[in-house]
Design a protein around this nucleic acid. Sequence first.
DNA 1: GCATTTCTCGGAAACGCTTTCATAACTGTC
DNA 2: GACAGTTATGAAAGCGTTTCCGAGAAATGC
Lengths: 356, 356
Amino acid sequence: MAYYACALPRSLQPYMNRPARLVDIAEQLGISASTVSRALRGYPDISPDTKEAVVALAEKLHYRPNPIAQNLRNQESRIIGVMIPEIVHYFFSSVIGGIMEAADQHGYTVMLCQSSESEAREKQDAAMLLNSRVDGVLISLSDTTRTFEHLEAFRARGTPVVMFDKVAEHIAASKVLIDDVQGGRLATEHLIAQGCKRIAHIRGPHGPVTTEGRMAGYREALERNGLPFDPALVKTCTRVTKEAGMALMAELMALEAPPDGLFAVTDLAAIGAMVQLKRTGYAIPHDVAIIGFSDWDMASIVDPPLSSVFQPGFDMGRTATDLLIREIRLGQQEQPAVPETHVLETQLQIRASSTR
Amino acid sequence: MAYYACALPRSLQPYMNRPARLVDIAEQLGISASTVSRALRGYPDISPDTKEAVVALAEKLHYRPNPIAQNLRNQESRIIGVMIPEIVHYFFSSVIGGIMEAADQHGYTVMLCQSSESEAREKQDAAMLLNSRVDGVLISLSDTTRTFEHLEAFRARGTPVVMFDKVAEHIAASKVLIDDVQGGRLATEHLIAQGCKRIAHIRGPHGPVTTEGRMAGYREALERNGLPFDPALVKTCTRVTKEAGMALMAELMALEAPPDGLFAVTDLAAIGAMVQLKRTGYAIPHDVAIIGFSDWDMASIVDPPLSSVFQPGFDMGRTATDLLIREIRLGQQEQPAVPETHVLETQLQIRASSTR
DNA sequence: GCATTTCTCGGAAACGCTTTCATAACTGTC
DNA sequence: GACAGTTATGAAAGCGTTTCCGAGAAATGC
């Protein structure tokens, strides 16, 4: 019958008001820690009296369970790892916003890594996340990533992975994508609706599924509306910059039959095209109507404000996170999850650069 | 003498290759877990032979200590909480980049929260971080925050807090700031060097230390260079938007003696001013030379490219994190940390909008 | 050859929580 | 009143580490 008054075992306790623990509540009420735990977690076999007393005291002491202890005991970290190529980026930071909101709602926290488009860095971060015992991973691949053992490592340990935006087709994992084809179609059809007859397209590099999709949408819209596809009106930029947009726009206007509309693969290219047109005395949208893609913050501040195709970044983050958490929960019940692919719709954001 | 072969206590172990633990190494070598631990952590009282064997096997099994168990044992989380008003924001995402780099270097991970400029949300996040037992907190206050109990709560528990950018003067905590006065002075002196005689200033709202500082730098530069300060040339926008920039620029050009140079409190206002000037037929920089502040991504894409004062966001993140981690370490040794304030220098980013 | 120091190592407790199992006290039944 | 069934609770194990303490063996000192 050892009545012992906690002889400061808690590694001396000189510091200020340490947070209350289960045993603190238990001691004060003269009951055991396990009863307190059950009372707080709503187990049925606790007498109403005890439960009430426990809840009241917990409230009074501002008791919060120590998540670290819970994690150790429950074999989960309640952390999801997020790997993206770049943080300082309008689209990705929107995605992060969505991820954080969804994670927060489900009681998860986010561990963030940026690969800076380096495959080595991405693998290093993956190893770190694996080591940190994250419960799941959201990843948008670096452009330079060619092999995927680092993703396999997660699967091998049973940690679910959901890919978004920059995905690898053949990896068996859930994916969240944006419907670039639809976006390209919407943009082009909008220009058609504005009366454009010769619509040019400044496209991105060959390969990436995003730029290919936008190009496909462009062609689809032309066909559906009975407009001819003229290869001369399609220009490719290998690196999508404002300067590339300027140069390619100059080429387009030098054609015998220059375009009266432009759909650019990215706002940046569209803005370059706008600058070029203005410098050479053309009026936007009167001479050439322009629409970009992505709808970054810069679209609304250029002159004239640039129409664009909005990519639902926030929504993408939320969707991917919901998917991931669902898979985490399934995994905890030892049930296998079948990969799903969600395709998110884009939305036209019409401004002055394309309306006439 | 109970020889017992781990009868799958590890909560059944049906799953795939679980990560190796200390005891796994210990069992295979026929030694105790404590010896393994000490061998790996380089304690002196381990024989070279055992140490070598342990290290080799740990390597082979890809052993990594479970951070959750370490955290519980060591009473630290190795997580730092970061609270910012907005993630989708060029400056703040740069800061986050710096924070992440520094945190990573010191073996810390980052838990991110955004207040969305809401005081309630900020307090809620603070409570969450407190509950999560983060080792330290980096915060840039929401604009709407008026009371600071939530920061006090961290101090009360001995969790260091470092404030950056949006700081509260009277709170005793380390701070990292940007030298807005210097930035304002640099910008104005640059315009003076370009031959501007009547330099206008579109300033931000009264109150915030940032806008006041930029204004002070503006006056300082005028005085130092013997130019008169003309209140008519200073316009205040309550909300800093492109539209405000346009309207105020129109007012300035309507003056009897309009300006030949403009220093705007923000790139956004500067861009608004540029749009207004171009629409009314003025040439930039010929008629009015313009410089903004912040040097966001948009500065380089407008036409002409906008000169600006670069705020070292990345550097700010890194500096704040270094400071915080220093305080965390001091706290672990029960040594009090004296708050420091670091002021970071800005840098001119000269582009076409101001050079003539 | 005995006492003492040095060198290695194992045992055990602790971090805070959850959950299984056991038990004690009741309640009801025949 | 003996038994089964219920209800409320406690003891203890376990999650994976780290670290204090002490024990045995080897080495040293006299």
